[in-house]
């Protein structure tokens, strides 16, 4: 690439962001389908019965336990 061409390349604008260029959320990717077989749907169905606010409180309780376990694991090293 000569110097002029390299300048042109550097001055090229990045392609503008286009939301419609993304695959749909429902896009079926064979790799994702393999991972999907391991998803515990009973947990998801239970969560869907709750309001977002109830989910956030449940999540907070679960995460307190996760952080406690991490702390215990770190202090026992």
């Amino acid at each position: 690439m000569n110097e002029d061409a390299s300048q042109d390349f550097l001055q090229e604008e990045a392609a503008p962001f286009r939301a419609d260029a993304l695959p749909l959320a429902e896009y079926i990717d064979p790799v994702i389908e393999v991972f999907k077989k391991d998803v515990d749907r009973t947990m998801l169905r239970e969560n869907l019965k709750l309001t977002p606010n109830e989910r956030s409180r449940k999540f907070e309780r679960a995460m307190k336990m996760v952080f406690e376990l991490r702390r215990s694991a770190n202090s026992s090293r």
Partner: peptide
Amino acid sequence: DLNAIAELQALLEER
């Protein structure tokens, strides 16, 4: 993110 995408798509299907 592969696991997360799988879970979120399953969630969308369930919803």
